[in-house]
Amino acid sequence: MHDEPLLNVSNLTVDLLTAKAAVRPVDGVSYTVRQGECLAIVGESGSGKTVMNFAPLGLMPTGVTTNLSGSVRFDGRELIGLPESEIRKVRGKSIGFIFQDPMSALNPVRRVGRQIAEMAELHLKMTPRAAEERALELIKLVGISDPAARLRQFPHELSGGLRQRIVIAIALAGEPKLLIADEPTTALDVTVQAQILRLLKDLQRRLNMAMVLITHDMGVVAGAADNIVVMYAARAAERGPVDKVLVTPRHPYTRGLINAIPRREDPIGSEFRGLPGIPPTLGAPFKGCAFAPRCELAIPACTASRPPLARSADSAVVVACAVVNQRKAAA
C-alpha cells in the first residue's frame, strides 16, 4: 500500500454539540493529500474549514462535544475512533499546526525560546540544552534575524509577523510529515502576508512536507497549492487540481469566488464584485443545495435533494451542482 496518500479523508461529517445548539459544520467531505503536496481549502468564513481540520485531531475548545463519522486515515492509520491519548501522539510529532491568530496562539508569560524548545524535548527526546540549540536552528530556519536575542523574548515584545514565524517554528520542531496551516496570514498586515506565505511554501518544498492550507482568499491559492477543495456551508462544492479549477471553475460558487478576486485592470475605486447575499448560518444539514438562495442558475430541483459530487467534463474535477452535472450529462 505504498501508494496510499498521506492523508485520506473520506465522507467526514462533524457534529458539534454545544450548550446552545447542535450544528453540523462539516457534512460528508472527502479529499486526499499526498506527501509533498499542498492542498488548499477555500471557503467563506464560517463554512467549516477550521472544524474540518481540527476536530478529527481533538483540537476543539472546551464547552463543545464533537461527534465524528466517516474516515480520516493519516499515514496508514485510522484516526476516527482513536482514543485521545493516541491522537495526542500524532499531534505535534507527525502533524504540525499553524493558527490564524499569532497574537493569541503563544503563551504570553513564557519566553518564546522555551515554547519552541519544549517541542524538541517532547518529540525528539532532546535534553533541554540540545533543545535550546534546536530552537535556535529553527528560528533561523523561519528567517528571524538576531535569533539568539529573540529566543529570550516574550510574545508581546514581537510583531505579528515575527510571532507567526515563531508559531511556524513550533509547528516544524517535531519534524512533522503534514503541516496544517489555518488561515496563517489572515490576521497579519498585508505587507507581511506575502512573506509568510512564501516562507511556508518554501519550507514545505525544502522539507518535503505535505501541507493543508486553509484560506478564505482565492487569490492566495494560485501559486501555492496543487489541489483545491472549495467549501460552502459545511460541504465541498468543487474539488480538483488548482490549475484546472482556477482556469475553468464550474460550480457557480467557485465562479463567484474567483470573480471576486480584485484584478489589475479594475479601475481604481470600482465596486467590489463580491457574491451577492450572505452565507447561511449553520445548524441542521440543508435539504438540497445550500447555495440555492444565492445562485443565479438555481432551478426547483436544486432545493429538492442534495446535489451529489460528480465528475465533471474534466474527470479530475468533481462538482456538487445539479445544473452543471445535468448539462454534462446532456452533452
Binding site: L57, R88, K89, F97, S104, N107, E118, M119, L122, A171
Partner: peptide, 10 residues
C-alpha cells in the same frame, strides 16, 4: 487560545 497551541504540540 494558547492552550490549543499547547495541545497541538502533543
Amino acid at each position: 487560545p494558547f492552550v490549543l497551541t499547547a495541545k497541538s504540540k502533543g
